[in-house]
Computed example of a mutant assay.
Amino acid sequence: MTIKPDTPRAAIVGAGLMGRWHARAAARAGARIVAVVDTDRSSAAALSARYPGSRIASDLANIGEIATVAHVCTNVDSHAATASALLGAGLHAFVEKPLAASAAETSALLEQAAAADRLICPAHQFPFQRGVREAVDALRSVGPLLHFDFVICTAGATGEKNMASLIDTVLPHPLSLVSAFLPGSLARLKWQVLRPAPGELRAVSAFGSATVSILLSTAGRPTTNTVTLTCERGTITADLFHGFSVVESGGVSRTRKIARPLLRSAATLSAAAQNLVWRAARRQPAFPGLNELTALFYEAVGNDGPAPISPSEVREIAVARELILKSADS
Rank of each mutant, 00 (worst) to 15 (best):
I324F: 04
S84Y: 13
A85Q: 11
R321G: 02
T154C: 07
G64W: 13
A318D: 05
E322M: 14
L290N: 09
I33P: 05
A83R: 08
T237L: 01
N275Y: 08
F126Q: 02
T7S: 05
A46L: 10
A25N: 09
M18I: 14
G16Y: 10
S265Y: 13
L17S: 05
L166G: 12
S43Y: 14
V252H: 10
A45V: 05
V69G: 09
F181T: 11
F244S: 04
V72W: 14
A113I: 11
V227W: 12
V204A: 08
V136I: 09
I214G: 00
R188S: 12
D40E: 08
C153L: 15
G19P: 02
K326L: 10
A295R: 10
G19V: 01
R133D: 01
M163P: 03
N75C: 08
L119I: 10
L146F: 15
T228P: 00
L290E: 13
A27I: 06
H147E: 15
T2H: 13
C121L: 09
S330K: 15
T268H: 03
R264C: 08
T169R: 14
G199C: 04
E160M: 01
P127M: 10
G184K: 12
T2P: 08
L171D: 04
L229A: 01
A115N: 05
L182C: 07
S58G: 14
N162A: 13
L119P: 11
R221F: 13
R233N: 15
D40G: 10
A27S: 10
A320Q: 13
A49S: 04
V37M: 15
S265E: 15
Q192C: 03
I167D: 09
I309D: 00
G16W: 07
V247S: 04
A49F: 04
L47V: 06
G199L: 03
L215Q: 07
E232H: 04
R321P: 02
I317R: 01
L262M: 00
I214T: 02
H124M: 03
Q129C: 03
A61N: 14
A187D: 15
L194A: 10
G131C: 03
R282D: 04
Q284L: 14
R130S: 06
A44S: 09
A266E: 08
A286K: 06
G156Y: 02
V277C: 05
H92E: 01
T224N: 14
V301L: 02
A281G: 14
A259V: 04
V212Q: 03
A10M: 13
Y51E: 04
L276D: 11
I309V: 09
L240E: 02
E292Y: 07
V314C: 12
A295C: 06
F148A: 03
V227M: 12
F181D: 07
M18W: 13
D77V: 15
L139C: 04
F128Y: 11
D137I: 12
A210Y: 12
H242D: 07
L263G: 09
S179F: 07
G19C: 00
A281D: 14
T74R: 05
L189W: 06
I214Q: 01
R32C: 11
